[in-house]
Amino acid sequence: MVTTDEKGPLTAKKKSVIIRSCDGDEFLVSESAAVLSTSLKKILEEKEDRLIHLSDIDNKTLAMVIAYLSTHADDGLSDDLKRSFDQEFVSGKEFDVLKYLVLATDTLQVTCLCYTVAKKMADIMKNKLVEWVRREFDIQNDYTPEAEAEIRRLDAWAWDDRQLEDD
């Protein structure tokens, strides 16, 4: 495909940018994929430089986000295919991986992926016992036993008749 940029000359090659993770790995990404992230789009609009350094996203997470962006920038894929890609993308991923993904997509403002990942995390938490969530997600309970009992008493309805899973 031949495109014309603002300066006039024709470029036969798609424009691309280099994105560097916090651990130094560099990824070559087409501009059409990069601009699906609102943050990257802003950076690209503001500076000429084609190298973007992301100081708080590791290479493993960045590779996943870029795979997502490239898939969604591909005009050859139908919306149905993209939707099933999204489902595949989050299924079976460890909670830790999802956590880094949700942070990265929040920073990069990739709204769709942030939504999909957050929903997946909520699905994991749904109908789980408090102890299960604390244990699996390493949350330190800093309530005194009295304070915790008081919360459970005030909002007793929230723990009523729920089918809870502890495995």
């Binding site: 749904k126 309970n141 309805w157 929230a158």
Partner: peptide, 20 residues
Amino acid sequence: CHILSFLSTKNSVATSVLAR
């Protein structure tokens, strides 16, 4: 909060007991 927004209010109130 974004993650909790996918849960019912009952489920998200239940998270109040996790930690302060």
